[in-house]
Design a binder for these strands. Structure first.
Length: 265
DNA sequence: ATGACTTGTAATACAAGA
């Protein structure tokens, strides 16, 4: 039984509803996790998405910022939202599928611009969030669960996850401190980095190209901020991985592009 | 020179992204 899971920071689900339709029609994910939906639940375009063939449409959003959603072609067993850093700021949503697979969708705080937790509360929040994720995935009770952790983790952990490692090391998202926390999280959960399972670490792999510097995409000045990680029990089921870079070239694109994994269960 | 943009909110800037 093949299962296609995708994750996409869509940067406003309402602005990108047409892109969402185009992407789902061309790539037909069974489960699609979205981040930065930027809409409160009462305004979420639920019916429009259901008409795209998603029977289960779950969302956890707030006004203006953040917000996550999970779209599933079929019904699911259950869903859940967890609180991180004692704030319910709509950064996590999970589903348990009928086959027992759990998809956990995260939007990790970006962390502001100054990479110093003393000077920058947003960076402190990001570090704390990553630490809490590590504690959560370390729980021995979930060690043998079939977990797919996806989302915009806002960290590009490896040298070839950014277009210029030396230059970017001092920037939030690629500091040694953040890269180390990501490595610890992977180790703690015995997680497989699906992107790097399929694309060797000596090759560049990106999922985000900034808006501010216009030629960033053309010059391939990218970062890999979006991730798919699985617990070890799912490693043998991994079949295919893909970054849908095309979407960054669409009209009025999100600055992030979708990541896709296929599993054979 | 990752700046120079984009979004949502609310009222012509501002906060936030990363």
């Amino acid at each position: 039984m093949s299962l296609r899971i995708a994750t996409w920071n869509i940067n406003s689900v309402r602005q990108r509803i047409g892109h969402l339709k185009d992407f789902t029609e061309s790539h037909h994910p069974d489960v699609l996790s979205l981040q930065e939906t930027k809409v409160q639940n009462s305004e979420f375009p639920e019916n429009e998405i259901k008409s795209m063939g998603y029977e289960t449409v779950l969302f956890h959003g707030q006004k203006s910022y953040n917000g996550v959603a999970i779209l599933c072609k079929k019904q699911v067993k259950s869903s859940n939202q967890l609180i991180w850093c004692e704030k319910d700021d709509c950064r996590h949503l999970s589903v348990t599928l009928d086959n027992g697979v759990q998809v956990h969708n995260f939007y990790v705080p970006s962390g502001g611009s100054i990479p110093d937790p003393e000077q920058n509360d947003k960076f402190a929040h990001k570090l704390q969030f990553l630490k809490e994720m590590t504690e959560w995935i370390s729980n021995p009770e979930i060690k043998n669960d079939k977990i797919i952790l996806v989302g915009d983790l806002n960290v590009a952990p490896l040298e070839n996850d950014v277009w210029n490692h030396k230059k970017i090391q001092k920037s939030v998202g690629h500091t040694p401190l953040e890269c180390d926390l990501m490595a610890k999280m992977k180790e703690a959960g015995d997680l497989t980095d699906v992107g790097r399972h399929f694309v060797p670490a000596d090759q560049p792999l990106y999922s985000w190209w900034g808006y501010r510097y216009k030629p960033a995409f053309a010059k391939n000045y990218g970062w890999r901020l979006d991730h798919i990680l699985t617990t070890d029990i799912l490693k043998a089921a991994l079949q295919h991985f893909e970054v849908v870079k095309d979407t960054r070239g669409w009209e009025k694109p999100s600055d992030h592009v979708p990541n896709i994994v296929d599993l054979n269960l």
